[in-house]
Design a protein around this nucleic acid. Structure first.
Lengths: 118, 118
DNA sequence: TGGATACTTTAGATTAAACTAAAATAGTTG
DNA sequence: CAACTATTTTAGTTTAATCTAAAGTATCCA
């Protein structure tokens, strides 16, 4: 049984939240999930799927060559509501883009230097 | 106004959750918080306090040379309840110790290798 | 003013997370 | 079984988070 801490860690990542959203209402194959995230490799998606599964947030069904993933909202409790709220937010897509963008390139903007005294 | 995403990121860290717990019921000075976390420097604590403040999860009051920090549970909503649950858990102290320990040393245990076929 | 206290910030180092490319596993099909 | 498809895993790299040590800022008090 995964801990609350593991759940918090899992949903802290925008990438994992995006995956969770994709499999929230209906199951999808790993391949379909990857297709929806063209900026990372299949391998990267697979690793995040593993993290989510280890946190108990998704379940797997194997059928022929495919693996179907589906969210387990019951593992999230109230947290699920919070995520749905984030996804319903009209500005959500933009925000997510910004979040992912931030993780993609460049040094983070640093705060103004102090006004030198001497 | 900090985003939900920023809040999730902030409470994903066991160290920051520990600080949050310390200032949950009553305000404390930065120094008092640091005293309760002897395994990190004052500077490290100060940085985490900044993160928490930027996420809107704590507020500051300056009085003389001291800075008093206090949690803002209203910024956490339902999440606050979840944290309280974690802290009430009798096993909590042990679990936290384990979490922090894990971040302190050694490579994480990796899963069994596949049984070689050929 | 100068030294002590309380804290923050910076710069650089260390650790951990996330990613890529390639190899491995496993079903399916002929 | 060989080739093909779907996916996972490994090994190594890159990026981001966290930490330390030292310097900086602010307040207090003699």
């Amino acid at each position: 049984m995964p801990s609350q801490a593991a759940i918090l860690a899992a949903i802290a990542s925008p990438r994992r939240r995006e995956i969770l959203r994709l499999v929230w209402k209906e199951e999808r194959t790993a391949g379909a999930i990857h297709q929806a995230m063209p900026d990372v490799t299949f391998g990267a998606v697979s690793l995040q799927l593993r993290s989510l599964a280890e946190a108990g947030l998704i379940q797997t069904r194997a059928k022929s060559r495919n693996r179907f993933y589906r969210a387990r909202p019951e593992a999230l409790g109230q947290l699920g509501k919070m995520l749905e709220q984030m996804w319903d937010d009209k500005l959500w897509a933009l925000k997510l883009e910004a979040e992912l963008e931030q993780t993609r390139r460049g040094p983070r903007p640093h705060r103004r230097p102090r006004t030198k005294k001497g």
